[in-house]
Design a protein around this nucleic acid. Structure first.
Lengths: 147, 147
DNA sequence: TTAAGTGCAAATAGTTTGCAGGGAC
DNA sequence: GTCCCTGCAAACTATTTGCACTTAA
Protein backbone atom coordinates (compact mmCIF):
# COMPACT_ATOMS: atom_id res chain seq x y z
CA UNK A 1 0.00 0.00 0.00
CA UNK A 2 1.50 3.31 -1.05
CA UNK A 3 1.21 6.57 0.85
CA UNK A 4 -0.67 9.52 -0.63
CA UNK A 5 2.64 11.21 -1.34
CA UNK A 6 3.82 8.19 -3.27
CA UNK A 7 0.56 8.13 -5.16
CA UNK A 8 1.04 11.75 -6.13
CA UNK A 9 4.67 11.11 -7.05
CA UNK A 10 3.78 8.34 -9.45
CA UNK A 11 0.93 10.37 -10.93
CA UNK A 12 3.40 13.18 -11.56
CA UNK A 13 6.12 10.95 -12.89
CA UNK A 14 3.75 9.29 -15.31
CA UNK A 15 3.13 12.62 -17.04
CA UNK A 16 6.51 14.29 -16.76
CA UNK A 17 5.44 16.60 -13.97
CA UNK A 18 7.58 17.35 -10.97
CA UNK A 19 7.40 16.78 -7.26
CA UNK A 20 8.20 20.01 -5.47
CA UNK A 21 8.43 21.01 -1.81
CA UNK A 22 5.33 23.16 -2.32
CA UNK A 23 3.28 20.28 -3.63
CA UNK A 24 4.49 18.03 -0.85
CA UNK A 25 3.54 20.59 1.78
CA UNK A 26 0.17 21.40 0.27
CA UNK A 27 -0.68 17.71 0.04
CA UNK A 28 0.35 17.12 3.64
CA UNK A 29 -1.67 20.03 4.98
CA UNK A 30 -4.60 19.12 2.79
CA UNK A 31 -4.75 15.61 4.20
CA UNK A 32 -4.55 16.93 7.74
CA UNK A 33 -7.17 19.59 7.35
CA UNK A 34 -10.26 17.42 7.56
CA UNK A 35 -13.07 17.48 5.08
CA UNK A 36 -14.38 20.39 3.06
CA UNK A 37 -11.43 22.76 2.90
CA UNK A 38 -11.60 25.73 0.60
CA UNK A 39 -8.53 26.93 -1.28
CA UNK A 40 -8.50 30.00 0.93
CA UNK A 41 -8.53 27.91 4.12
CA UNK A 42 -5.82 25.65 2.90
CA UNK A 43 -3.69 28.58 1.79
CA UNK A 44 -3.86 29.97 5.33
CA UNK A 45 -2.69 26.65 6.78
CA UNK A 46 0.07 26.31 4.27
CA UNK A 47 1.29 29.85 4.75
CA UNK A 48 1.58 29.23 8.47
CA UNK A 49 4.25 26.66 7.64
CA UNK A 50 5.87 28.41 4.69
CA UNK A 51 4.91 32.04 4.30
CA UNK A 52 6.40 32.28 0.82
CA UNK A 53 3.84 30.04 -0.85
CA UNK A 54 1.52 31.84 -3.24
CA UNK A 55 -2.21 31.47 -3.44
CA UNK A 56 -2.09 30.52 -7.09
CA UNK A 57 0.07 27.53 -6.24
CA UNK A 58 -2.54 26.29 -3.81
CA UNK A 59 -5.27 26.63 -6.44
CA UNK A 60 -3.12 24.92 -9.02
CA UNK A 61 -2.12 22.12 -6.69
CA UNK A 62 -5.65 21.41 -5.50
CA UNK A 63 -6.76 21.11 -9.08
CA UNK A 64 -3.86 18.76 -9.68
CA UNK A 65 -4.85 16.68 -6.67
CA UNK A 66 -8.39 16.51 -7.97
CA UNK A 67 -7.16 15.35 -11.37
CA UNK A 68 -4.96 12.74 -9.78
CA UNK A 69 -7.87 11.42 -7.78
CA UNK A 70 -6.44 12.36 -4.38
CA UNK A 71 -9.00 15.11 -3.85
CA UNK A 72 -12.67 15.48 -4.59
CA UNK A 73 -14.42 18.78 -5.17
CA UNK A 74 -17.46 19.20 -2.95
CA UNK A 75 -20.26 21.62 -3.61
CA UNK A 76 -21.90 23.39 -0.70
CA UNK A 77 -23.86 25.71 -2.93
CA UNK A 78 -22.24 28.79 -1.44
CA UNK A 79 -20.02 29.88 -4.30
CA UNK A 80 -16.82 28.43 -2.88
CA UNK A 81 -15.25 25.23 -4.14
CA UNK A 82 -14.25 22.96 -1.33
CA UNK A 83 -12.22 19.79 -1.51
CA UNK A 84 -12.10 16.67 0.54
CA UNK A 85 -9.36 14.06 0.66
CA UNK A 86 -10.13 11.03 -1.46
CA UNK A 87 -7.55 8.42 -0.74
CA UNK A 88 -8.38 4.90 0.18
CA UNK A 89 -11.69 6.37 1.26
CA UNK A 90 -15.09 5.22 0.37
CA UNK A 91 -17.22 7.53 -1.64
CA UNK A 92 -19.83 9.36 0.38
CA UNK A 93 -22.50 12.01 0.05
CA UNK A 94 -23.50 14.85 2.34
CA UNK A 95 -26.29 15.70 4.70
CA UNK A 96 -26.08 19.42 5.41
CA UNK A 97 -27.84 21.48 8.05
CA UNK A 98 -29.04 24.71 6.49
CA UNK A 99 -28.93 26.51 9.80
CA UNK A 100 -25.62 25.60 11.41
CA UNK A 101 -23.91 24.31 8.25
CA UNK A 102 -22.85 21.12 9.98
CA UNK A 103 -22.37 18.35 7.49
CA UNK A 104 -22.57 14.62 7.95
CA UNK A 105 -21.09 12.16 5.51
CA UNK A 106 -23.46 9.48 4.37
CA UNK A 107 -23.46 6.46 2.10
CA UNK A 108 -26.29 4.27 1.04
CA UNK A 109 -25.50 1.23 -1.06
CA UNK A 110 -29.09 0.98 -2.23
CA UNK A 111 -28.99 4.52 -3.58
CA UNK A 112 -25.63 3.93 -5.23
CA UNK A 113 -26.99 0.88 -7.00
CA UNK A 114 -30.13 2.64 -8.15
CA UNK A 115 -28.04 5.47 -9.55
CA UNK A 116 -26.07 3.06 -11.70
CA UNK A 117 -29.27 1.42 -12.87
CA UNK A 118 -30.85 4.75 -13.73
CA UNK A 119 -27.83 5.84 -15.71
CA UNK A 120 -27.67 2.56 -17.58
CA UNK A 121 -31.32 2.83 -18.52
CA UNK A 122 -30.53 6.14 -20.24
CA UNK A 123 -27.42 4.81 -21.95
CA UNK A 124 -25.01 6.64 -19.66
CA UNK A 125 -21.84 5.37 -18.08
CA UNK A 126 -21.28 7.24 -14.84
CA UNK A 127 -17.97 8.66 -13.77
CA UNK A 128 -19.15 10.17 -10.52
CA UNK A 129 -22.02 11.90 -8.85
CA UNK A 130 -22.89 14.39 -6.19
CA UNK A 131 -25.76 14.11 -3.81
CA UNK A 132 -26.44 16.62 -1.07
CA UNK A 133 -29.41 16.52 1.24
CA UNK A 134 -30.33 19.85 2.83
CA UNK A 135 -32.43 20.26 5.93
CA UNK A 136 -32.36 21.01 9.63
CA UNK A 137 -30.48 18.93 12.17
CA UNK A 138 -32.05 17.83 15.44
CA UNK A 139 -30.23 20.49 17.47
CA UNK A 140 -31.32 23.36 15.24
CA UNK A 141 -34.90 22.13 15.15
CA UNK A 142 -34.94 22.01 18.95
CA UNK A 143 -33.58 25.55 19.10
CA UNK A 144 -36.12 26.76 16.54
CA UNK A 145 -39.13 25.30 18.30
CA UNK A 146 -37.90 26.49 21.67
CA UNK A 147 -37.70 30.12 20.59
CA UNK B 1 -55.50 26.82 -9.80
CA UNK B 2 -53.58 30.09 -10.10
CA UNK B 3 -51.16 30.97 -12.86
CA UNK B 4 -47.46 31.47 -12.12
CA UNK B 5 -47.94 35.20 -12.51
CA UNK B 6 -50.72 35.18 -9.94
CA UNK B 7 -48.53 33.13 -7.63
CA UNK B 8 -45.78 35.71 -7.95
CA UNK B 9 -48.25 38.54 -7.44
CA UNK B 10 -49.51 37.13 -4.18
CA UNK B 11 -45.99 36.40 -2.99
CA UNK B 12 -45.09 40.02 -3.68
CA UNK B 13 -48.25 41.43 -2.14
CA UNK B 14 -47.73 39.39 1.01
CA UNK B 15 -44.46 41.17 1.67
CA UNK B 16 -45.16 44.63 0.38
CA UNK B 17 -43.19 44.17 -2.79
CA UNK B 18 -44.35 45.34 -6.17
CA UNK B 19 -45.32 43.73 -9.43
CA UNK B 20 -43.54 45.50 -12.27
CA UNK B 21 -43.48 45.07 -16.05
CA UNK B 22 -39.87 43.89 -15.75
CA UNK B 23 -40.75 41.16 -13.30
CA UNK B 24 -43.70 40.10 -15.40
CA UNK B 25 -41.57 39.87 -18.53
CA UNK B 26 -38.70 38.07 -16.84
CA UNK B 27 -41.08 35.54 -15.32
CA UNK B 28 -42.75 34.94 -18.66
CA UNK B 29 -39.49 34.44 -20.53
CA UNK B 30 -38.13 32.31 -17.72
CA UNK B 31 -41.07 29.94 -17.92
CA UNK B 32 -40.72 29.69 -21.68
CA UNK B 33 -37.02 29.11 -21.75
CA UNK B 34 -36.97 25.47 -20.78
CA UNK B 35 -34.84 24.04 -18.04
CA UNK B 36 -31.44 25.14 -16.86
CA UNK B 37 -31.26 28.77 -17.92
CA UNK B 38 -28.41 30.87 -16.68
CA UNK B 39 -28.93 34.53 -15.78
CA UNK B 40 -26.89 35.46 -18.81
CA UNK B 41 -29.07 33.35 -21.14
CA UNK B 42 -32.25 34.72 -19.69
CA UNK B 43 -30.98 38.28 -19.94
CA UNK B 44 -30.38 37.77 -23.65
CA UNK B 45 -33.93 36.51 -24.14
CA UNK B 46 -35.43 39.31 -22.13
CA UNK B 47 -33.39 41.97 -23.90
CA UNK B 48 -34.69 40.71 -27.22
CA UNK B 49 -38.15 41.75 -26.06
CA UNK B 50 -37.23 44.87 -24.13
CA UNK B 51 -33.73 46.13 -24.76
CA UNK B 52 -33.81 48.49 -21.83
CA UNK B 53 -33.81 45.82 -19.13
CA UNK B 54 -30.63 45.65 -17.08
CA UNK B 55 -28.69 42.57 -16.18
CA UNK B 56 -28.92 43.31 -12.48
CA UNK B 57 -32.69 43.20 -12.68
CA UNK B 58 -32.54 39.72 -14.14
CA UNK B 59 -30.21 38.55 -11.38
CA UNK B 60 -32.41 40.16 -8.75
CA UNK B 61 -35.61 38.77 -10.20
CA UNK B 62 -34.29 35.24 -10.54
CA UNK B 63 -33.27 35.29 -6.91
CA UNK B 64 -36.73 36.57 -6.07
CA UNK B 65 -38.32 33.77 -8.06
CA UNK B 66 -36.16 31.27 -6.24
CA UNK B 67 -37.24 32.70 -2.88
CA UNK B 68 -40.86 32.60 -3.90
CA UNK B 69 -40.53 28.97 -4.90
CA UNK B 70 -41.20 29.55 -8.60
CA UNK B 71 -37.61 28.77 -9.58
CA UNK B 72 -35.05 26.27 -8.40
CA UNK B 73 -31.30 26.80 -8.61
CA UNK B 74 -29.55 23.93 -10.34
CA UNK B 75 -25.88 23.18 -10.03
CA UNK B 76 -23.97 21.95 -13.07
CA UNK B 77 -20.60 22.29 -11.37
CA UNK B 78 -19.35 24.69 -14.03
CA UNK B 79 -19.34 27.92 -12.07
CA UNK B 80 -22.62 29.21 -13.44
CA UNK B 81 -25.86 29.21 -11.50
CA UNK B 82 -28.73 27.94 -13.57
CA UNK B 83 -32.40 27.94 -12.71
CA UNK B 84 -35.28 25.78 -13.67
CA UNK B 85 -38.99 26.53 -13.40
CA UNK B 86 -40.55 24.99 -10.35
CA UNK B 87 -44.25 25.42 -10.61
CA UNK B 88 -46.66 22.56 -10.29
CA UNK B 89 -43.76 20.39 -11.36
CA UNK B 90 -42.52 17.23 -9.79
CA UNK B 91 -39.12 17.29 -8.27
CA UNK B 92 -36.40 15.68 -10.33
CA UNK B 93 -32.67 15.16 -10.42
CA UNK B 94 -30.16 15.34 -13.24
CA UNK B 95 -28.11 13.03 -15.36
CA UNK B 96 -25.44 15.10 -17.09
CA UNK B 97 -23.11 14.20 -19.95
CA UNK B 98 -19.67 15.57 -19.18
CA UNK B 99 -18.80 15.76 -22.85
CA UNK B 100 -21.75 17.34 -24.59
CA UNK B 101 -23.39 18.80 -21.45
CA UNK B 102 -26.75 17.30 -22.36
CA UNK B 103 -28.85 16.76 -19.30
CA UNK B 104 -31.68 14.39 -18.65
CA UNK B 105 -34.16 14.81 -15.84
CA UNK B 106 -34.63 11.78 -13.67
CA UNK B 107 -36.63 10.70 -10.67
CA UNK B 108 -36.41 7.54 -8.68
CA UNK B 109 -38.97 6.97 -5.96
CA UNK B 110 -36.77 4.39 -4.30
CA UNK B 111 -33.91 6.88 -4.01
CA UNK B 112 -36.24 9.58 -2.74
CA UNK B 113 -37.50 7.29 -0.02
CA UNK B 114 -34.03 6.19 1.02
CA UNK B 115 -32.96 9.80 1.27
CA UNK B 116 -35.74 10.55 3.71
CA UNK B 117 -34.88 7.46 5.72
CA UNK B 118 -31.20 8.39 5.83
CA UNK B 119 -31.98 11.90 6.99
CA UNK B 120 -34.34 10.65 9.66
CA UNK B 121 -31.75 8.26 10.98
CA UNK B 122 -29.45 11.23 11.58
CA UNK B 123 -32.18 13.34 13.16
CA UNK B 124 -32.56 15.61 10.13
CA UNK B 125 -35.72 16.91 8.56
CA UNK B 126 -35.06 17.51 4.87
CA UNK B 127 -36.17 20.60 3.03
CA UNK B 128 -34.70 19.67 -0.33
CA UNK B 129 -31.81 17.95 -2.01
CA UNK B 130 -29.68 17.95 -5.08
CA UNK B 131 -28.48 14.91 -6.89
CA UNK B 132 -26.50 15.04 -10.09
CA UNK B 133 -25.05 12.04 -11.87
CA UNK B 134 -22.13 12.77 -14.16
CA UNK B 135 -20.94 10.54 -16.95
CA UNK B 136 -20.90 10.01 -20.70
CA UNK B 137 -24.01 9.59 -22.79
CA UNK B 138 -24.34 6.85 -25.39
CA UNK B 139 -23.68 9.22 -28.31
CA UNK B 140 -20.49 10.62 -26.83
CA UNK B 141 -19.20 7.18 -25.93
CA UNK B 142 -19.78 6.04 -29.50
CA UNK B 143 -17.94 9.09 -30.80
CA UNK B 144 -15.06 8.55 -28.37
CA UNK B 145 -14.54 4.90 -29.26
CA UNK B 146 -14.87 5.62 -32.94
CA UNK B 147 -12.04 8.16 -33.00
C1' DT C 1 20.12 21.38 -19.55
C1' DT C 2 15.53 22.26 -19.97
C1' DA C 3 10.80 21.78 -19.47
C1' DA C 4 7.96 22.48 -15.59
C1' DG C 5 6.82 25.09 -11.38
C1' DT C 6 6.61 29.27 -8.62
C1' DG C 7 5.17 33.89 -6.78
C1' DC C 8 3.38 37.98 -7.97
C1' DA C 9 0.19 40.96 -9.88
C1' DA C 10 -3.02 41.74 -13.26
C1' DA C 11 -6.95 39.76 -15.59
C1' DT C 12 -11.31 37.33 -15.78
C1' DA C 13 -16.05 35.72 -14.90
C1' DG C 14 -20.04 35.65 -12.42
C1' DT C 15 -22.59 38.11 -9.34
C1' DT C 16 -23.71 41.96 -6.08
C1' DT C 17 -24.27 46.67 -4.64
C1' DG C 18 -24.59 51.98 -4.30
C1' DC C 19 -26.92 55.45 -6.18
C1' DA C 20 -29.96 58.73 -8.59
C1' DG C 21 -34.03 58.76 -10.98
C1' DG C 22 -38.70 56.48 -12.05
C1' DG C 23 -42.90 54.02 -10.95
C1' DA C 24 -46.39 50.96 -8.36
C1' DC C 25 -49.54 51.12 -4.78
C1' DG D 1 -46.65 60.68 -1.32
C1' DT D 2 -44.03 56.86 -0.04
C1' DC D 3 -41.19 53.13 -0.63
C1' DC D 4 -39.87 49.95 -3.76
C1' DC D 5 -37.68 49.06 -8.15
C1' DT D 6 -34.73 50.00 -12.02
C1' DG D 7 -30.55 50.71 -14.95
C1' DC D 8 -26.05 51.87 -14.85
C1' DA D 9 -21.51 51.44 -13.48
C1' DA D 10 -18.46 50.36 -10.09
C1' DA D 11 -17.35 46.92 -6.61
C1' DC D 12 -16.59 42.36 -5.08
C1' DT D 13 -15.25 37.44 -4.77
C1' DA D 14 -13.43 33.35 -6.29
C1' DT D 15 -10.44 31.75 -9.53
C1' DT D 16 -7.20 31.91 -13.59
C1' DT D 17 -3.40 33.53 -16.29
C1' DG D 18 0.92 36.01 -18.16
C1' DC D 19 5.42 36.62 -17.06
C1' DA D 20 10.17 36.57 -15.43
C1' DC D 21 12.61 33.75 -12.43
C1' DT D 22 13.76 29.31 -10.11
C1' DT D 23 14.31 24.42 -9.75
C1' DA D 24 13.60 19.24 -10.14
C1' DA D 25 14.98 15.61 -12.98
Amino acid sequence: MQTPEQALASYLAARNLKMTPQRRLILREFLQSGSHVSCEDLWARVKAVDGSIGQATVYRTLKLLADSGLANPVDFADGVTRYEPHYGQEHHDHLICEQCRTSIEIVDPVIERRQEALAKRHGFVLSHHRMSLYGLCAACRAKASGS
